[in-house]
């Protein structure tokens, strides 16, 4: 069975741990507990009859990505860059952050994810968010309702399997 390291990264309070918990344990807590250092857990997924072990690293949020210990990025096959759709401060450094991550992971998959869509409506997404977000996102999720969370991880898993 193939194993790959995935990283959840982004500013603090954007819902990385909530996405992690939703994907790995299918649970959600509205209580905010800041992540200290890193959480590591795994999930075995079955994609088109092939099994893949996803080792997910949920890294403590930092305002900019260059504050994160370099070693956490090493050996990752994919990175999920999470921002909070309701807080512009969580995506204002998106361009430099993504450039930084691309430099760290030149051959890896980088997915830009807007989380907490349960807190906004479609009109906000189509007007304000689309004009304000510095880069287009790959998927919008809600860790609270579970919307598109499984889809996010499975689409990355599929790309990883197709590569190997």
């Amino acid at each position: 069975m193939l194993s790959h390291k995935l990283i959840l990264t982004g500013s603090y309070g954007v819902g990385k741990t909530s996405l992690f918990d939703r994907f790995l344990y299918n649970k959600f807590s509205s209580k905010y507990l800041t992540t200290i250092g890193v959480n590591v857990d795994k999930k075995v997924v079955n994609i088109d009859g092939r099994q893949l072990t996803m080792i997910v690293w949920d890294i403590a949020g930092e305002v900019t990505q260059d504050k994160i210990p370099n070693a956490y990025f090493l050996g990752a096959s994919a990175m999920i860059y999470v921002f909070d759709v309701t807080r512009a401060s969580t995506y204002e450094h998106m361009i430099s952050d993504i450039d930084f991550l691309k430099a760290k992971l030149p051959k890896g998959i980088i997915s830009i994810v807007g989380n907490k869509i349960d807190l906004v409506d479609e009109q906000f997404i189509q007007t304000e968010l689309k004009t304000q977000a510095p880069l287009p996102w790959d998927i919008l999720t809600s860790a609270k309702t579970g919307e598109h969370v499984e889809e996010l991880f499975l689409s990355i898993g599929k790309k990883l399997l197709n590569r190997s």
Binding site: H4, G37, K42, T53, W57
Partner: peptide, 27 residues
Amino acid sequence: SGLLIASANKDADDDIIAGMVTAIKAF
């Protein structure tokens, strides 16, 4: 990466232990 290559007593949690000790070591 912290990916487990081998374990003398394979257990379901070994992948997580491997990742976590790597994170501690890296930190």
